[in-house]
Nucleic acid binder design. Structure first.
Length: 217
DNA sequence: TGCCAGGCCGGGT
DNA sequence: ACCCGGCATGGC
């Protein structure tokens, strides 16, 4: 059977057998996950960890603290994550939304209807679909499949889609063909990132020893 | 050493 | 509707 549902299942099973559970999202609180989602935009996770460590050490990994923090000081703390000036603004925009829209209450925010919350988050300057969906899935436990550059690269190399497929198109395609399950979405995305880092970089298109070698739609 | 990393925005065509 | 430069640090 080469139908998409089975191909997606096969890929997941191979990845899980090869790599095991990835324990995503790395981070100790929902707020830390939210901050990490912004800081990791086009950035190596190692650099994000340093930035988060700086925030923790300064006692500033807190909604109200960052809300009140001078933007220049915030930028200085997150410097290791790169793009620190623009990311300081983006964090401020997001936190302003949470504080002023939901009284800084994450429980209240995530109890909103997922679709409308997604639309609201997408209106915030600096948050695109991957950042928003990461927040919804990994901080909010909402069944939203996160698409990223690795997802697109890996799936296109296995003829599941074209490399220039849009975010929403690929997300819809995936969500229509696998069970709508938060834990599955969580692990699947994490495994794709793991595969991407280890075997599916831009520079090694052949994926010689990759665990899903030979699986095609 | 140069290329890349768990994107997104704004201005131009 | 696409296309592209800018944003910036640290790892390999």
């Amino acid at each position: 059977m080469g139908d998409l549902t089975n191909v997606l299942k096969d890929i997941y099973n191979r990845l899980y057998s090869a790599f095991g559970p990835q324990h995503w999202w790395p981070g100790e609180s929902r707020f830390e996950i939210i901050v990490g989602a912004v800081l990791t935009q086009n950035t190596n996770w190692k650099n994000v960890e340093r930035a988060i460590a700086n925030l923790k050490q300064a006692g500033n990994l807190d909604i109200q603290k960052i809300y009140e923090l001078d933007i220049g000081t915030l930028a200085g703390l997150i410097r290791p994550a790169g793009y620190f000036n623009i990311k300081a603004k983006r964090l401020k925009n997001l936190i302003k939304f949470i504080v002023e829209g939901y009284s800084a209450d994450l429980d209240r925010m995530f109890s909103a209807d997922t679709y409308s919350l997604r639309q609201q988050l997408l209106e915030i300057n600096g948050l695109g679909p991957e950042t928003v969906d990461s927040i919804l899935l990994y901080a909010g436990n909402k069944p939203v499949f996160v698409v990223d550059a690795y997802t697109r690269r890996i799936f296109s190399r296995h003829s599941i889609c074209f490399e220039d497929i849009s975010y929403d198109e690929l997300q819809s395609l995936i969500e229509a063909h696998i069970d709508r399950d938060v834990s599955l979405y969580n692990e699947y995305h994490a495994l794709l990132v793991r595969l991407g880092k280890d075997y599916c970089k831009k520079s090694n298109p052949l994926c010689n020893k990759c665990p899903i070698k030979g699986i095609f739609l």
